[in-house]
Amino acid sequence: MSSAPDTLDRPGEINARPVRHPGRWIAIAVLAVLAAMLISSFVTNAKWDWPFVWQVMKYKPVITGLLAGTILGTIGAMIIGVVLGVLLAIMRLTDNPVLKGASWLYIWFFRGIPRYVLLIVMSVGILYLYDTLTIGLPFLPVTFFTINVKTFSTGLFVGILALGLSEAAYMAEIARAGILSVDKGQDEAACALGMSKGLSMRRVILPQAMRVIVPPTGNETLSMVKDTSLLVAVPVTNEMFFQAQAVSQATYKVMPSLIAAVIWYLIVSTILGMGQSWLERHFGRGFGAQTSVQNDTRVKFLGLRGGGGN
């Protein structure tokens, strides 16, 4: 009512005051006080011992543990998980009842076992049951080749395999949902162009399914980063959390050692999160996904300044 209308009778451009959001300002104030309290305790409480945290973070066994156990473990397990998971999803969606059943059985089995237990069972059990692995015809004296399990069964290899096999069961469901999300007309269009089922899956269906598959796969990858700390069950000693704990036990500085691990996990998660948003943009092309996401964040910030009227 403060701004007068234009000289003409017809209403002109709207110059309205935005809705006030006093709740937001109160929340900011409360959180700012809490954050200040936390930071002041970080600085004043000597038991945090930040210099020691930093020392543990760059301590060589912790770094190699981070590279081998945490990062290599995550990458290896996720590669096995995604490839096998997509394969299982495709098996589940074929008309072939045998493949369908096999896929269902696999998923049922590996989703039913805790990863910690699976890691122990696979590391201890496989070596106990089969010290050599012979590939041949069942019940017949025909062998193709023999593998000495001991040479393969280093802790990290078994650990990655176990985590990957477990992950595949979850990825299969994610991939299946992604494949089913693609419009049936896409496959028909591909078929009408003379594509075989496989080519249609590879060139048309999967690239579109990725848009649905990537976000939950990002979650799975983050979970995997954290689940590599379970590798201690194999046991894998060349793993970051195990090494950080070893430092804490040797020095009795428990919290600083653990905080070093926490910070490393946060750093790795942050980098992976950035990789995920890049992938989402890549597979979202043609869907106008990225612009809407950008607009959403902008709206949120504007809202905080009282500019957004939503």
């Binding site: 007309g185 003379g194 579109q208 848009r211 043609g286 869907f287």
Partner: peptide, 29 residues
Amino acid sequence: AAQRREIGMVFQRFNLFPHRTALQNVMEA
């Protein structure tokens, strides 16, 4: 699939491949 190569089809709902540009759609097959 080989028999279908001889026959072009246009759908009611277009069914273009949304993740590819117009040119890529035409080049795909």
